[in-house]
Computed example of a mutant assay.
Amino acid sequence: MSGISAETGIHHANLYTVLDALSHRGLVVSQEGRPRVYRIPSLSHMEEMLIAKVRQLREDLEELHKTRHERREIPTLIYTVRGEVDVVAKIVGLIERAVETLLVVAPSLDALGERVLQSIAEATKRGVRIRAILAEPTSFDTAGMEQRIKRDTMAIDMVADSKEALISMPDLSVCGWADNPFISVQLEGFLEQTWQNSKKE
């Protein structure tokens, strides 16, 4: 023990405590007796032990990442999109991703352009329930789309499947977009009240 104490700088009175701790970790093998004998395990044993610990650590980290991902219902980013071309592309993408419901608010549906109108038509064919709150009736074929009129409608709002939301300036110059369920549900709740208070067409 005196040799180990000299090599490690650990006082000989503390050596047994340190060696017992190493033994519990599998880094030292102890043999009962008087005196107790300590020896280093084989390198293959230590390699297997370290590999197992690294594997377990990796599995724990993957499980933690999975759990955090499943609980993360609120993405932190709200994206700002500028320019009519990019705003229209974002609107079309939102409509194309809609599976069950789409709530649209706009001063004029026709003013959104042919690409948006075509996307709405295709969404109705997919069975998406589409409701539109407009400042004025549209000349667009509204077959399969519910429509209500609210004359003071100014901005463009859209919510798809309670998961994705978009708010745009009427001229499509800039919009805010988020694939954020919390924000989408909040906006959808407000638009739902507007729907209930709007005039049936």
Results as ranks from 00 to 15, higher is better:
N14Y: 00
V18Y: 01
A132I: 09
L191P: 00
F140Q: 09
G26V: 11
P107N: 01
P137L: 12
V128L: 10
Q147W: 09
C175F: 11
M1D: 03
E73V: 15
G3Q: 11
S30T: 07
S173C: 03
F140E: 09
R97C: 13
E100M: 08
S23F: 04
Y38K: 01
E146L: 11
T8L: 00
I133M: 07
V105I: 04
E7Y: 01
R72S: 15
E96S: 10
M1F: 06
S139Y: 13
Q147D: 02
A6T: 09
E70F: 09
H24R: 10
T8Y: 00
T153K: 07
I91S: 04
R58M: 14
E100D: 15
V104L: 14
R36Q: 06
N197Q: 15
G127A: 04
E192H: 09
D60W: 06
P41G: 07
I130F: 02
R58A: 15
S2A: 10
S5H: 02
E63D: 13
T80S: 06
I95R: 03
L172H: 05
A178R: 00
E7D: 14
K66V: 10
S139V: 07
R39A: 09
R55C: 04
R72Y: 07
L109M: 11
A89V: 07
E70M: 14
T8I: 00
H45E: 13
I40N: 03
